[in-house]
Design a protein around this nucleic acid. Structure first.
Lengths: 256, 256
DNA sequence: AAGTGGTCTAGACCACCTA
DNA sequence: AGGTGGTCTAGACCACTTT
């Protein structure tokens, strides 16, 4: 039996097209991914070394590394210095969900609308004052609103904002809480960072009424804190989403 | 007023230490990120051009690009060919959650244990047979088990597996469903890819009883499908997690 | 010593945008 | 035309692992 070439294996177009609009490193990454997907390199096995790849595909070291970095970023492969680059077994820990999926759901401009339920200057509970780092008894802006999709309510957003008397309320409110901007990154030039956590929850009677779902039906609760460039908290609040209308999904392993 | 140097701005150690154990591109990336975090480059503004950075920090083009690619990967910055590299406003769409967080919760080897509730050869419902791509009436392996943490039940996993008569049941069962391996990537060499979706749910009476929580309490439901290297479905099932014991959290924007 | 991944350079060329 | 990001190279050197 003929000795198997460790690099080349039957696969369509096993070369880098220098006239392609696609960069060489992208082509190479796709090529290798396709080979891995086809089972030519099984999980745990080592890929051809970078120098093998370099000479086989007639590209430079840097180009090979760029390609392999893509695969590593995809979680398909792992490189160990001095040892080699190995195909990673699929693992669930690598699953990651993008909150952006929700964006499609309720921030669609064509179908979405917002109904304010409450906009007030309030003295927040001690717990919340603590989170906002304001003295107890000091006022904050409280906003509660309903996001509708095709006139069907899907989501309640309630939020406490730092009250800045030097700025008109409407402005600070719009800036910090313009949801479209928050999600697509078009605005929000004064927020530096944020934390968010997703929890499972059920609607209470009040919330269920607003969203027109039965009480005790499932919901996602997303609690958020936003900071400005002085690392001061500017906002704390939560999104309550209908569980039946929102979910997160993703793929892992070798696709395509 | 003195003209502001567009590249250098007061910041500790604004240079690349060539004797450091840290690669130059990592140092540069951290440096720039720190400057952005300090508000020296505001969202929407343009970073110094690559050639400016190159000459200021005395590094090569490739090194600058590697640094910028890190920032771009972090979602901190966006490069537009022919225009420049710009600081991105924080946006929620960039939030991403790692399923790995759950791993800590229930796959901890020290504290976790598994109790099998059911292991059977069953004829699955038509809907499930369809997902598994097996003819109606054909048998599949059904597994249902409880994952406990410190002897407290936190999670129910139920799963249908393709029944392969050529393999002993126990083996195929252990291979596909060894949860530890699934999550940390130590095993699972025969799974190519998977899809998973996370939904909000509430426990029914049966499930609530198993997990010792009140009925109708909140839960995460994670439905999964796994494929082998022939793109055949090998498993369909779901994790049901106590909502009070599991949540996902993440950070976005400029941290550290 | 030989093989592996990892970093870095100096310079080249290209594609794109703005004037 | 001149600036910007984007790709690529050939070769150098380093750090780590295995033999």
């Amino acid at each position: 039996m003929k000795k198997r070439d460790p690099v080349s294996n039957h696969i369509e177009a096993d070369f880098v097209d220098r006239d392609s609009y696609e960069p060489a490193y992208v082509q190479l990454a796709k090529l290798l991914k396709r080979k891995i997907g086809a089972g030519l390199f099984l999980p745990g096995e080592m890929l051809p070394s970078e120098s093998e790849l370099r000479s086989f595909y007639k590209v430079s070291q840097m180009t090979v590394r760029q390609a392999i970095n893509i695969l590593a970023g995809d979680g398909v492969v792992r490189s160990l210095q001095g040892k080699g680059t190995f195909v990673k077994p699929m693992n669930l820990g690598a699953f990651s969900f993008q909150l952006g999926e929700l964006q499609k759901l309720f921030i669609d401009k064509k179908h979405a609308s917002i109904k304010f339920l409450e906009v007030d200057l309030v003295i927040p509970a001690e717990r919340i004052a603590k989170i906002l780092s304001i003295p107890p008894g000091e006022r904050a802006v409280y906003i509660r609103r309903l996001i509708l999709k095709d006139n069907e309510p899907v989501l309640i957003h309630s939020e406490y904002l730092i009250y800045d008397p030097t700025r008109p309320l409407v402005e600070s409110e719009m800036e910090v809480t313009s949801l479209e901007g928050l999600f697509d990154g078009s605005g929000q030039t004064d927020l530096k960072k944020g934390e968010i956590s997703i929890n499972a929850a059920v609607f209470n009677d009040d919330e269920a009424g607003l969203l027109k779902v039965p009480p005790q039906s499932p919901a996602f609760k997303m609690v958020h804190v936003f900071y400005d460039f002085n690392d001061k908290v500017v906002s704390w609040g939560q999104f309550l989403c209908r569980g039946d209308q929102s979910h997160f999904s993703t793929k892992v392993g070798i696709w395509e």
